[in-house]
Design a protein around this nucleic acid. Structure first.
Length: 479
RNA sequence: CGGGGUGUAGCGCAGUCUGGUAGCGCACCUGCUUUGGGAGCAGGGGGCCGGAGGUUCGAAUCCUCUCACCCCGACCA
C-alpha cells in the first residue's frame, strides 16, 4: 500500500492530486492556476502528440503555427464567440514600456486569428480545402482550476479547416471526431461516447459541436475532445470568401477540433489505483523497467551483467528508449518498485540472484500485480503479449465500469435520485429545449453531455415536461 | 465578487489564547546493519515564523494595515 496517496474512497479529489504528485507528473507554478508539467508528465504528452499527429497527417492535415497574441478586436467580431470567451481572457495592455494602441489578448483559442489569415489565403475554390493543425498553448482565466483538467494555461492541438461546401465541413467535423474516438479507445484505453452537444453546451460561435465523453472512476463525466462545425459563422466574421466554379463569391465553411493536456487527467482518473498512476502500455513513455536486485558487490556484478542480457533480449520487441534499467543500488528494492509503479510503468522485470541462476526474469504487471517467471528465450514474446493483454484489460475494465454506471430513467424523480445516489451517465428523454436543460442543471448540477448520433433511436416523453422526444440523451455531472 | 479558511525548514504540521529569542514528522546528508512491495539504529545540515508598521526591556505570539494561497458558489477544453 502506498503511504503517500490518499485512497480514492476517502477523498477522490485528494487522491487525484496525490497521484500527480507521487508520479512527479506536474507541480504548481508560482502563477495562480498555472502548472509546471514535469518530465514524467510531459513524456506522456509527447506520446499523445506523436500518435495524434500521425493520425492528423494520415487524414490529410499539415501543421503550422499562429501567434499567441491576438488583437482584441478580433475576438469581438463573432457575436457568440465574444460572449463566450470575454470573461476568461487575459489581456496585454502594455508592452515596451508603453500603453498599446489596441489591447492584445492571449489566445483562448485561435479561430479568429486563423480565420483572418485564411481570408488572405483563400481566393478560389482551388485554394480549398485548407487543412491545418497547430500544437500550441492557450490561456483561459478560469475561476477554479485543477491540474491537467482545468488550468489557466494549457497545451493542446487545434485543427482548423476551410471547405467549399457544408457537406464537406460536416464530413470533416465527423471524421475528426472519429479520429479522437479511435485514439482515446485504442491508445489511451478510455471508452468514450461520441455525440452532439446541445445548443447551450456548444462552442461559442459554432453551428454544431460534437464531443467524445468519458466516465471517470468517481462516476463524473469528462469532455475529452471536441469537434466543431463552424458553418460560415467565422468565414462571415473574417471574410473568408472564394470564387466558386461558376464565378460566384461564397463564404467558406470552416471547422475546428481539439484535444488538450486534459487527456492526461482523463488517463489518470480512468485507470489509476490507490498505489498511484497506471498507464496503458500503448501510451506509456516507459513500458518496462528492469530492476536488478542484489545484496553485495559479487551479486551486483552478476545481476547487472544479466540485466544487460535481459534488456538485449527485449531488443526486437520494444523501442530501447522505452526500457529503463534502474541500477540504483543505494535504494532498496521496494523503494525502486514504488518509484516506477507510481510513474505508471506497465511492466516491471525483477532480476535477482535467483533469476540469474535459473536464467529467468520475474515479470510483474502494474495493473493487477500478477507475477510470472519468464525464461530469457520467451521474454520478448511474453512481454509483447502481456502489454497487449494489459492494454485490452484496462480498456475492458473501464468499459465495464461505464456500463455498470450507465442508467436509464423515465421520470424526473428517478433522474434526481440517480444523480444524487449513483452518478454516472444517465440516459433520459428531453424535449430539446434550453430552458428545461437549464432547469435540470440548476436543480441537479447534471448537464447534457451529448446527444447520441449512432445507435437506434427510441422515442419517448421528456422526463420533465412529458412532451415528445425522439431519442434519449446522455446526462451526467461533469468536470 | 460573496461565504469559509490558511500563511512557521523542501513537504505536512505544532507552538499564538496566557510575549522570554523556534519545535515535531517526512524528506535531505554521514556511518553501520538491512534489501524479492515503502527498513532499523546513531549522528548531522537546513527557518528574517508571508510583508510593512506599531506596542514592549523583549514579538511567530498582542494591535493596525497589506499581500498571497486554499476550499465552497457563479464560469469552463
Amino acid at each position: 500500500m502506498a503511504t503517500n496517496i490518499t485512497p480514492r474512497k476517502d477523498n477522490y479529489s485528494q487522491w487525484y492530486q496525490d497521484v500527480i504528485s507521487a508520479g512527479q507528473l506536474a507541480d504548481h507554478a508560482p502563477v495562480k492556476g498555472c502548472m509546471v508539467i514535469r518530465p514524467t508528465g510531459y513524456a506522456i504528452w509527447e506520446e499523445i502528440q506523436a500518435k495524434l499527429d500521425r493520425r492528423f497527417k494520415e487524414t490529410g492535415h499539415v501543421n503550422a503555427y499562429f501567434p499567441v497574441l491576438i488583437p482584441k478586436s478580433f475576438i469581438t467580431r463573432e457575436a457568440e464567440h465574444v460572449e463566450g470567451f470575454s470573461p476568461e481572457l487575459a489581456v496585454v495592455t502594455q508592452a515596451g514600456g508603453k500603453e498599446l494602441e489596441e489591447p492584445l489578448v492571449v489566445r483562448p483559442t485561435s479561430e479568429t486569428v486563423i480565420g483572418h489569415m485564411y481570408s488572405q489565403w483563400v481566393q478560389s475554390y482551388r485554394d480549398l480545402p485548407v487543412m491545418i493543425n497547430q500544437w500550441a498553448n492557450v490561456m483561459r482565466w478560469e475561476m477554479r482550476t485543477r491540474m491537467f483538467l482545468r488550468t489557466s494555461e494549457f497545451l493542446w492541438q487545434e485543427g482548423h479547416t476551410a471547405h467549399e461546401t457544408p457537406e464537406e465541413a460536416e464530413a470533416e467535423t465527423l471524421k475528426m471526431l472519429e479520429v479522437y474516438r479511435e485514439f482515446l479507445e485504442e491508445e489511451l484505453a478510455i471508452p468514450v461516447l461520441a455525440g452532439l452537444k446541445s445548443e447551450r453546451e456548444k462552442f461559442p460561435g459554432a453551428l454544431r459541436t460534437y464531443s467524445v465523453e468519458a466516465l471517470m472512476q468517481d462516476a463524473k463525466a469528462l469532455q475529452a475532445g471536441t469537434s466543431h462545425n463552424l458553418g460560415t459563422n467565422f468565414a462571415r466574421a473574417f471574410d473568408i470568401q472564394y470564387l466558386d466554379r461558376s464565378n460566384e463569391r461564397r463564404h467558406a465553411h470552416t471547422t475546428s477540433w481539439g484535444v488538450s493536456t486534459r487527456l492526461i487527467g482523463g488517463i489518470i482518473m480512468t485507470h489509476s489505483d490507490d498505489d498511484g498512476l497506471i498507464l496503458p502500455p500503448r501510451i506509456a513513455p516507459v513500458k518496462t523497467v528492469i530492476i536488478p536486485l542484489f545484496k553485495n558487490p559479487q551479486e551486483e556484478a552478476q545481476v547487472m551483467a544479466f540485466a544487460d542480457k535481459v534488456k538485449a533480449a527485449l531488443g526486437g520487441a520494444m523501442d530501447p528508449l522505452k526500457v529503463r534499467v534502474d541500477t540504483r543500488g543505494d535504494l532498496r528494492p521496494a523503494d525502486r518498485f514504488f518509484h516506477w509503479a507510481q510513474q505508471g510503468v506497465p511492466l516491471r522485470l525483477e532480476v535477482g540472484p535467483r533469476d540469474v541462476a535459473e536464467g529467468k526474469v520475474m515479470m510483474v504487471r502494474r495493473d493487477n500485480r500478477a507475477k510470472t517467471s519468464v525464461t530469457l528465450e520467451a521474454l520478448a514474446q511474453t512481454v509483447t503479449d502481456t502489454l497487449a493483454a494489459m492494454q485490452k484489460d484496462l480498456f475492458q475494465k473501464a468499459l465495464d465500469f461505464r456500463q455498470a454506471n450507465t442508467h436509464s430513467v423515465e421520470t424526473y424523480d428517478q433522474f434526481k435520485k440517480t444523480v444524487e445516489e449513483k452518478g454516472g451517465f444517465i440516459l433520459a428523454h428531453w424535449n430539446g429545449k434550453g430552458e428545461v436543460e437549464a432547469k435540470i442543471k440548476e436543480e441537479t448540477k447534471a448537464t447534457i453531455r451529448s446527444i447520441p448520433i449512432t445507435g437506434k433511436k427510441e422515442p419517448g416523453k421528456c422526463m420533465v415536461t412529458g412532451e415528445p422526444s425522439e431519442q434519449r440523451v446522455v446526462f451526467a455531472v461533469a468536470y
